[in-house]
Structure formats: C-alpha cells, structure tokens
Design a protein around this nucleic acid. Structure first.
Length: 898
RNA sequence: GCCCGCGUGGUGAAAUGGUAGACACAUGAGACUUAAAAUCUCCCGGCCGUAUGGCCGUGCCGGUUCGAGUCCGGCCGCGGGCACCA
C-alpha cells in the first residue's frame, strides 16, 4: 500500500501531537480490538431460529482499486445499523462482496496491458486490505465477487431456468455503433455524438439482442410500490414515473397511397380528446412502414440515415433537432373520410413506446406545435381556457389535465370539462363508434441484457444450424470465460477467440457456436443479496437460508441507483420466485431503503493562459492570512509583513496575474480528474478509523452530501482524545467519592440514551452525534458520585460503539464493562427520568415572541392562559388592548392575538 | 429536453406548522506558559443601542394560517437519473 504523505498540514500536526500524548493511540487499540473480534467470531452471521434476524446490506462496491470516502460513509452507515441491531439482540447478517464485472477492467487492459481478471482480483485484494482497518462488523466468510465462476455459473443456471419459463427472448435493438472501430459503444463512450477513441460520429445500428420480459411486470412493479413504505417517497415516485403507466386510445387510421400490406396505421394517443385537432400523423424512423419505404425510395433512405446519426440515449434523441419527412402517404380521419392527414417520418417518435406511430395535435402539444410550424401544417385548437374565445395560438395551450376547459372541437362529454373527463369520454365515444379501444400502456421497456464485451457473465446458449438457439446443459455450467484473450484491437475478444466459440449442440450434438454476448452487469447485482444468504450453496440459493434471512431489512446505497438497479432487482426477485429460487415473501427483496449522499471536497483551481481550468491537489496549495483577508495560493508564497503592503487588493491582483491565486470551489463530487479526492487511508493512518467513521457520520444528514474537510477530521480526533482523557479521569476517581448533581447526571444520561436511540432508528446519525457531543460536555463538567459517573461513561461508550467501536471497547473494558461492548445489550432509558417537571413556554403576541413563562408540565391550559395574561411583560406589551383570541398549545407555545 | 431532489450564519447544520441557528468547524478575545504547542474559558446572523431591548433575516415573488424554514402556486440557482458507467 502506498501512502501519500501529508494531504494537509493538519496531518503532520496530528502526528506530532500524538507523539506527545501517549494516551489515545488509535492505531494500536484498533488493531488489538479487530483481532479480538476476529478471534471471537463476533460478526459471523448465525442462522438462529430462536432469535429475530436482521439483514443489513450496503450496495457492494465496484473494485476500482482504492476505497474512497464515499465507501467509508456508505459502509459506516450500514455498520452503525448492524452494530445497533446486534446490541438490540438481533441475529445480524452484514455481508460484503464485489460487483466485479464491467468495462473498467477491459479499459485497463487496453490502456495498460494485463488481463481484466488479474486487474480485478488484484484490486479486490487491495480494497479488502483497505476496508478491514475500518473495523466494520462484516461477516467476511460470506464474501464473493460476481466474477467468481462459482457465482456467475449460478447466474447462468437461473438464466436457463428463466428462458424455460418464457421470461427471456431475443429481438433486434439499437446500439451505438462506432463505424471506425467497428464496435459497439456504451453510452458513456459516446461524447458529443462521437466515439471516445475514434472520434468518429456514431450511428444507431440494429443488432439481435437478449431481453428480459420486465414489461410483463410493469403493472405489478408499479402497484407494489405502494407497499414499500420504508422506501424514500422520491425513489418510489421516480420508479413510478419510469414505469410510466398511461391510459389512452389505440386505433387504426386507414391509409391512402400506402404500399401493399400497409393499408392500416395503428397509432396510440393519451389525448384522444384532441382527435378533432389532428393535423398530421407521424411514424418512427424504426417503424416497419419507414423501413419498407427506405428500401424503395432513396429520399427516405437518406432521411433515415440522417435520423440514425448520434447516440441511443433518450437525452440525445430529445435534444436533437426535430425533423420530419413527408412520405406522400395520407391517412383518413376516423370520423371524416374526406379529411386526410399527411404521414411524416419524424425522428422524435419512438418505436418502443405505444405503436411507434402517433397523430399530432399542434394546438395542445409543444413538440407537435413546433413541428407543425416548421412544416406549415394547420394548428386547430380543440379547447380554450374557460370563458376564452378561439384565437390564433403562438404556442401550444397545455393546461393541467385536472383543469376545466371549454371544448370547441370536442366530440365527447360536456362542452366544459377537465382534460381527464374528456379523455375518458373520448375513449368511450370512440369505442362506441368502433374506432379503436382504450388501452393501458407503459413507458417501461424490456430489459436488454446483451453486451458485446468480454468481462461479463457469458450468456449460456449455443447457436446450432439445425436446432437454432439452444441453452447449454446445466451440468456443463459454468460456461467459463477463456483466459487467453487480448485487447489490442477493439471489439469483443470472445468473437475472435480461436476455439472457445466452437462447441457441440446440446440438443443434437452437431458442431455449433457459443453465444459471445455477455450479460449486463445489472444482472450480477440483481441477486447478490440472495446469494449472501447461502454463498456456498451448490444451487443459486438455499431455500431454508433464504427463508430465514430474506428480506434485506435495511438496504443502503447511492441515490444514483434509485431507478435501474433497484427496479431490475425487484423484477429479478420475482423472476427468481417464478423459477423456484426465492420464496414468495422475497419478491420485494428490500424492506427498507436508505439513499445516502455523496462525499464532497473543495476543488483548487487556477487557469492556464488560454483560460482553461487547471486543478491542484490539496497538498499543493496553502491558505495564508493577509490583513483581514484569507487567500489560497499555489506553492510557497512568502507572507508579506503587515506594513509591506499598502493595498491588499493590488497585492492579490498581483498574485492572480502571476497565476498563483487559487480559486476555491466548494462541495464538488470527489473525482480524480478534479484532483479533490481524499484518500481514507491517509486519514486512518493519521487519526485512526474511529475518527474517519465518526467524522463521516457527523455534521451532515446522511441523505445529503457531506463536505470532507481536513479541519473537521482534526476536530473529530481532538474530541475523541477528550473522551479518552475523560475516561481516564473517571477511572481514577476514588470509589467512595460523593459528588453533587447525581440526579441531574442520571437524567442527562437517560435523555442521551433516548435521543441517540431515536436518532439511530430514524437514520439521523448526525443528530445522534450532536447528542453525544452534548452529553460529553455535560459529563466532563459534572462532579457526581463515582457510581453515577461510571455508569455515565459506560453508557457513553455503548452509545458511541456503533460509530467508534474500537474506542468504545477500550472504555468499556477500562470501566469494568462485562464482555465485549459490541456484544453488550443496548442501554434502555428509565422513562421516569425522561419527564421534566416544569416547562418554559414562549409567549407570542400576534405571532411574535415577546415573553416566556415557566410552568409545571401538567398545568391545565386554562390556568396557563391566566398565567400568561398576568405576565408582567405581556401586560406591558398589551397596554390594555383587548385580547381577541388566545391559543395555548400544551407544552409548546402560547399565542395572544390582539 | 424529460423525471426527481435540494437551497437556513463565514462553514457543516438543527428545528411533530409553534422561541430560527441545537451540536460542531473556522475566526476573534482571554486564562495557563519564559515562550510556543497542547489544553481550558468566553464571544460569534445583520443593523441600531452602554444595556434592558428593538427592527430585519431561512434563494426570489405571492398565498393559506392565530402562527410558515416547514404547507400551496409561480420563478431562479445547484445536484442526481434518463435504459450499454457502476
């Protein structure tokens, strides 16, 4: 392990201080306790039917090579929960593994040579070595990587079962095609519409790909969101929007002038009420009709080629200029055979949604409006604002669907009605007239899992000339990746492997070809939570173990996974149930979800002579104070004496001109390219794991981003040193010391237990820590009797244990705690000590705070009212004005209205 | 472009619709010290005032309410996701 020395001056100062302070030595105590825990096997998950279980899981990391502060925060959060639940008496499962397949390993092989497998396993070694010093309560005996053949072989077995269950199929789908490198690109490899290596404009090209029928579950995945009450509301909303249920009308236009076989054009609309405002029909460039025309008409072919430029992302599609081509084909309006609409091919119509064909109503859709304006198509309003008159539109009129509007070209329902009512009435009217039918559609598309890449789980099927596509026999699993591959040319090395592709057909035995596509890495992460319940089982899961441990009681990870990973996992759990790999209760695998924020850090930036930003490492900049200003500079700028500078601004301008003045950008996501990454290993080396753990849990609420500051880490270390000294002081107290304020300290202890417990339960770790700061201050000022003081410090150790487990064990042992602090039962507050006898109530007059009174907690409101009105300050403020109303909120506030 | 979220002192933040700024960081002042470091104490949103206190203040504009950081509507700014990054 390499160590970058001195990310800041603070580290050096801390080293110095530590050599003076012989007492708090995190390095030695942390190693000691980790060895003790290991030896005792305290974190080994035990299937114990006599005890309630608790399964806490953090999203497993990609083995990039080094842990970063985001990992420290994520895994500390899970560890706080795991340790807290263990103290509550639960049998806890807290496992760790590696999301180990994926592109970076292949990129590394291409850039630096070597093999993805060696690179990946090497990284795992390093990262495991970096995680272990954090003292996480992980059951390492269950560890696995998704690139282990033992893991992905089971994944292949399930793929075969799911194929048999009809959940898997093949179809053509578009990919980003790099015409120079002749390879498929991931979206992130397409930059401004160009290939990242070749810089050639990418095209959309169709390829036959493997799909999961997640769309069969659209309705169920949507409805089941209501049951996920311990998920963040925003995640449920994002998933609901992603699934995108809509109710609309599907009907067929009769075509005119169309090629043979295309006498009807099916369209889908969510606004059938605007049918009388239709001015054109449009089909997707991928529509069968468009493809048919392409083969016969060079103009259409050229237009479609234009449409296929650029990447496959929704963003690229939606921000591209909206273009269309009149096909010369017309369709007849379903209500008037004399009314013809032109059919366009339009690049904004998606083949995946609805029928791949629409009608455009420019008056009530902004995109259609722009299209109609561009191609000079009629714009006929269907409705106007209630009471308004039909007027020329300068933009589409799109009121809320719940708003009442006046229909002027409606054909169903009332003249004045809401959009919702009109849509329902229009569907009913159309069905009655035999024009189409009401259908429920979803935006959710089937899950494409084919990847034309090496470093992934091979899709276990074989292509036989006689039998077609045949699954591999289960006894031949795993279909293992060949090791002898090279990455010197773009493309999938499996495609050009001399022997791996050749095999015999499992059905007829004839020579056949192995599938060379590998699976999307989202597959790997869609069931790892289930595998952790029985990581050595010879089948993908063990029902008895899955039945005991599932579901995950608390899942923790980044908000960036709100949609894809979590939705795929929800689907996959259902697919596993259908194929007998999970019990039915596990079809929603995550009972509770918590999404944590990022760890951020300042960026230090100057600019080169062309004005482009140049980034600097924290250790390359210095903060200097000049007069009353603080400036950040590059390198060693001599600090001038006060009297040497007459004009501070001019001096700073001088620094700026020399390129030495550093601009500080706060709260940026840590990234290597911005040089603002803080290596946790430096922090652990300098201050210990407890400091790193405490700091990432303090200050910011866990769902929000947290800014890493060197000063904050140092301050945390100081605080822990204070606790250490306090423990030593209390330990030195004579056993018979009779102090003062015993009752106050006992109450403060009970209140802290209550506050910390409630804070941890509600994931407010920053508030738990604030309460612990407050209690430490109280305790360090207290002079109570020895027994009360000792009880207080032992309780403090227990409450700190989830955050700072090593220090907690040391204090616990020093103060005579029994056994390991990590195994001690969580403290319970005596309810009698939590009740205050008197309360202070603020008195507002017309909503502004003017006075306060102290009253017994149980005083009736009528009596409180009398006391408040009799208060000297209140009487003075009222000055005899009549009181209109008085509001007494018991235990809270009094508001006098005059 | 579409979906979702966030915005409070110099900084990170706290606040079941009920005293805005708990708890920390930084700065400043002081104690201890020959001195420094460490440690400890105090101040710390803005304006006015010696002070009791007063006025203003939670991105901006408006609304609901006895009472709004919190609820509603509209803006502005920042961040996450958008199906082949993980």
């Amino acid at each position: 392990m390499t160590l970058d020395l001195a990310p800041c001056m603070g580290v050096i100062r801390a080293e110095l201080r530590r050599s003076l302070m012989s007492r708090y030595e995190p390095k030695s105590i942390e190693q000691k306790w980790q060895a003790v825990w290991d030896e005792a096997g305290v974190f080994t998950a035990r299937h114990d039917p006599a005890r309630p279980k608790y399964y806490v899981l953090e999203m497993f990391p990609y083995p990039s090579g080094r842990i970063h502060m985001g990992h420290v925060r994520n895994y500390t959060m899970g560890d706080v929960v795991a340790r807290y639940k263990a103290a509550q008496g639960f049998s806890v499962l807290h496992p760790m593994g590696w999301d180990a397949f994926g592109m970076p390993a292949e990129n590394a092989a291409m850039e630096r040579g070597g093999h993805p497998k060696d690179w990946t396993y090497g990284n795992i070694e390093v990262m495991r070595d970096q995680m272990k010093p954090l003292g996480l309560s992980i059951d390492w005996s269950r560890e696995f990587a998704t690139c282990d053949p033992e893991y992905y072989g089971k994944q292949q077995a399930m793929f075969i079962d799911m194929m048999a269950a009809g959940l898997v199929y093949r179809k053509a789908a578009v990919v980003n095609w790099d015409p120079v490198d002749m390879t498929v690109l991931a979206n992130e490899q397409v930059i401004d519409g160009k290939g990242w290596r070749s810089n050639a404009p990418v095209e959309r090209r169709e390829l036959t790909q493997w799909f999961f029928k997640i769309s069969d579950y659209s309705g169920e995945l949507l409805d089941a969101l209501d049951g996920l009450t311990n998920w963040p509301e925003k995640v449920r909303l994002m998933q609901a929007n992603w699934i995108g249920q809509s109710r609309g009308l599907q009907f067929a236009f009769t075509t005119h002038n169309a090629p043979e076989g295309f006498d009807r054009l099916d369209v889908y609309t969510t606004r059938p009420d605007t049918l009388m405002g239709a001015s054109f029909a449009a089909i997707s460039p991928d529509h069968p009709l468009a493809k048919h025309l392409e083969r016969h008409d060079p103009t259409v072919a050229a237009f479609l080629a234009e449409c296929r430029k650029g990447g496959t992302t929704a963003e690229a599609m939606e921000t591209a200029e909206k273009i269309g081509l009149d096909t010369g084909i017309n369709v007849l309006h379903p209500f008037d055979n004399n009314w013809q609409l032109p059919v366009y091919i339009a690049n904004f119509v998606l083949m995946d949604y609805g029928t791949g064909a629409i009608f455009g109503c420019p008056a009530h859709d902004q995109r259609d409006f722009e299209f109609a304006t561009k191609y000079d198509l009629p714009i006929q309003p269907v409705f106007v604002a209630e009471g308004a008159i039909d007027a020329h539109l300068t933009e589409a009129y799109i009121p809320m669907k719940s708003e009442r509007v006046q229909y002027i070209r409606g054909f169903a329902g009332h003249d004045v009605q809401t959009g919702e009512e009109a849509v329902a009435a229009a569907i009913e009217a159309c069905e009655a007239r035999g024009v189409g039918r009401g259908v429920t559609n979803y935006r959710l598309r089937d899950w494409g899992i084919s990847r034309q890449r090496y470093w992934g789980c091979p899709i276990p099927v074989i292509h036989c000339d006689a039998c077609g596509v045949v699954p591999e026999k289960k006894e031949n699993l795993p279909v293992e990746l060949p090791y002898d591959v090279t990455f010197d040319i773009p493309g999938n090395p499996l495609d050009r492997h001399p022997t791996w592709r050749n095999c015999s057909c499992p059905a007829c035995g004839a020579p056949a070809r192995r599938e060379t596509d590998t699976m999307d890495t989202f597959m790997d992460s869609s069931w790892y939570y289930a595998r952790f319940t029985a990581p050595d089982a010879i089948t993908p899961t063990d029902m008895a173990e899955a039945d005991y441990w599932m579901n995950v009681d608390q899942y923790i990870g980044g908000i960036e996974h709100a949609i894809l990973h979590l939705l795929y996992s929800r689907f996959f759990a259902r697919a596993m149930y259908v194929t007998g790999h999970l019990p039915q209760k596990a079809i929603e695998p995550f009972n509770a979800l918590f999404t944590q924020g990022m760890v951020t850090h300042e960026i230090y930036q100057t600019r080169d002579d062309k004005g482009r930003p140049v980034y600097h490492l924290p250790e390359d900049v210095t903060t200097i104070a000049v007069a009353d200003r603080k400036v950040v500079v590059l390198g060693d700028v001599p600090v001038p004496e006060e009297d040497e500078i007459s004009d501070v601004n001019a001096w700073i301008q001088g620094l700026s001109d020399e390129g030495l003045l550093v601009e500080v950008i706060p709260s940026a996501k840590m990234s290597k390219s911005k040089k603002n990454v803080v290596d946790p290993m430096n922090i652990i080396e300098a201050f210990g794991a407890d400091t790193a753990r405490w700091f990432v849990m303090s200050d910011s609420p866990p769902e929000r981003d947290v800014e890493w500051t060197a000063a904050g880490a140092e301050a945390t270390f100081k605080h822990l040193s204070r606790v250490w000294a306090l423990c030593s002081r209390i330990g030195d107290m004579p056993a018979d010391h009779q102090g003062v304020g015993d009752d106050d300290l006992a109450r403060a202890t009970a209140k802290t237990v209550d506050e910390v417990t409630r804070a941890i339960e509600s994931f407010a770790f920053n508030k738990a820590i604030a309460a612990l700061y407050g209690f430490t201050n109280t305790l360090s000022k207290a002079n109570a009797s020895t027994a009360i003081m000792k009880h207080a410090i032992r309780t403090l150790a227990q409450l700190m244990q989830p955050m700072t487990p090593h220090m907690a064990e040391s204090i616990w042992a020093y103060q005579g705690g029994e056994g390991l602090c990590a195994r001690a039962a969580w403290p319970v507050a005596d309810p009698a000590l939590l009740i205050d006898e008197t309360v202070t109530l603020p008195i507002q007059i017309n909503g502004k705070r003017r006075a306060e009174i102290s009253v017994p907690a149980d005083m009736p409101a009528s009596e409180v009212e009398k006391r408040a009105l009799a208060d000297e300050a209140v009487v003075k403020f009222l000055a005899g004005a009549p009181v209109k109303k008085i509001i007494v909120v018991p235990g809270r506030i009094i508001n006098v209205v005059i």
